[in-house]
């Protein structure tokens, strides 16, 4: 499903900018792919804990609280594997097909590989906070968007720098820094947020 969305966005994008000169299009392409990946990542964030909440397994999971944090990390990992990893693999391939050079494609792949798990981690906190609301999708997106801005800035700037053959290691470092920070914070924040919203 995520791949279908990505294809739709890219096809529409290419139709709409077919009047633009090819070199400008190539310059825009990686950035556009980055934005569409970010949007696709928001699409089903609220489902991370939703099913477990609805059928009551989450309650039981939290009561016998041995290793809740670890369980949450596994939950997020499985969500990332299912809904984000396909994009991380397919997006660079599409970029190559559309004529992007190899170096930039590689950067695109790397930044997505670091960026999308960070987005899943941030999103799971928002999902945990809003789980008791029936229609939490809009709220999750609103909470998450400002937090995604730094990732978007670093990701697109790394890709852009790579396109113009400028050094982009600073951006990659900062992105991995963000990833590790949220890897540490998220399990704790999530378990607390889940407990509060089940209250």
């Amino acid at each position: 499903m995520p791949i279908v969305y990505l294809l739709i966005i890219i096809i529409f994008f290419n139709i709409s900018i077919s009047y633009v000169a090819k070199d400008i299009m190539l310059e825009l392409l990686p950035l556009m792919i980055w934005i569409s990946c970010l949007l696709i990542c928001i699409l089903n964030l609220e489902t991370i804990f939703k099913e477990d909440y609805d059928d009551g397994t989450l309650e039981m999971f939290l009561i016998n609280n041995d290793g809740v944090e670890f369980g949450i990390l596994i939950k997020i990992l499985s969500h990332w594997l299912l809904s984000n990893l396909p994009i991380v693999i397919v997006a660079p391939l599409i970029a190559m097909i559309l004529g992007l050079d190899v170096a930039t494609t590689l950067t695109l792949f790397l930044t997505l590989l670091i960026g999308t798990p960070t987005m899943s981690l941030i999103g799971s906190i928002a999902a945990a906070l809003t789980i008791s609301l029936r229609k939490n999708k809009i709220l999750v997106s609103i909470i998450v968007l400002p937090l995604y801005v730094p990732i978007l800035i670093f990701g697109t700037s790394a890709v852009n720098n790579s396109f113009f053959k400028i050094n982009y290691s600073a951006e990659l470092t900062l992105m991995s820094f963000l990833f590790f920070i949220f890897l540490l914070i998220t399990p704790l924040a999530c378990s607390k947020a889940l407990k509060i919203s089940l209250d």
Binding site: D54, D55, G56, T57, E59, M60, I63, N64, N65, D66
Partner: peptide
């Protein structure tokens, strides 16, 4: 003690997409 409590609430805590047997073996602690 609090890890040895079984709670069954209004929500049954079983997965609809698993069979009865799978649900039970998942519950085996």
């Amino acid at each position: 003690l609090f890890k040895k409590i079984i709670y069954i609430g209004h929500k049954y805590g079983i997965k609809g997409n698993l069979t009865v047997e799978e649900n039970l073996s998942y519950a085996l602690t």
